[in-house]
Design a protein around this nucleic acid. Structure first.
Lengths: 101, 101
DNA sequence: CCGAATCCTGTTTGATACTG
DNA sequence: CAGTATCAAACAGGATTCGG
C-alpha cells in the first residue's frame, strides 16, 4: 500500500512542520527552530537527518566563518506542497467542526 | 497552527488506514481487521475509539444475535477524502523517486 | 551559532491469551 | 463476533553536556 510508504515519511510530530518551514525558503538550523518553538535541538537534528535520508531536503555546508549550514527542500520535498495544503485545510475544517462546537 | 490539530488526529500507524478502509463502505470490526492484516485487535479497538471521540466515525450496535457492531465515517471523516487521495498519490510518487531508484 | 553525544523517562505499540 | 487483559518491547522525546 502506498499509504504506508507516505505515512512512514510523514509520521512524527515534527516532519511536516519542518517541511512547512522550508516551503517558505531555505533556512538555517536556528531559523527552523524559531519557526517551531517547542522543538528541541536534538529532535530537530534527528528529524532533519531523517528527511535528508529520504531525499526530501538537502543539507549544504557553507564554508564561511563561522560555518553555516543551510537546509533546502528537494523537488521531492516541494512535491509535498499539495499534501501539506490539504492538511492545513482539513485542520481548519476539523477545528471548526469539532473543537469549536 | 492548524497543521498541529490535523496531525494529532492523523498521527499513528493505523488511523489513516482505518479511515481508508471505511471510505469503501461501512464495516464491522473483523472486516476492518482483514483490510489491515497486521493490526492487533487491541490497536484496532483503541484507534477506533480515538477516531470516534474525534467525530471521524460512528459506532453503531445492531441488536441482532449475535450482536454486530458497525463503523461508519461521519461527514467529517469523509471530508478527509481529498487528503487521503493526496497521501496515496504522494506515496506513489515517493516510491518511484526514492525506493525504486 | 550549529549542532553531536549521552543518558534517561514515559508513552506507544505489539504478542498473546482470554471473555461475553 | 467484538473486543479486554496482561505483560513486554520499542520508540519518541526531553535534559543535559559538550565541541568546532
Amino acid at each position: 500500500m502506498a499509504a504506508r510508504d507516505a505515512l512512514e515519511i510523514v509520521q512524527g510530530k515534527w516532519r511536516i512542520p519542518i517541511v512547512i518551514s522550508l516551503t517558505f525558503g531555505d533556512k538555517r538550523f536556528g531559523q527552523i527552530q524559531r519557526d517551531i518553538p517547542d522543538i528541541s535541538p536534538k529532535m530537530l537534528s534527528q528529524e532533519l537527518k531523517a528527511l535528508e535520508v529520504n531525499k526530501l531536503l538537502t543539507r549544504t555546508i557553507h564554508d564561511t566563518m563561522p560555518v553555516t549550514v543551510e537546509y533546502s527542500l528537494t523537488p521531492l520535498g516541494k512535491s509535498m506542497n499539495k499534501l501539506i495544503e490539504d492538511i492545513l485545510d482539513w485542520g481548519v475544517y476539523f477545528r471548526q467542526e469539532v473543537l469549536e462546537k
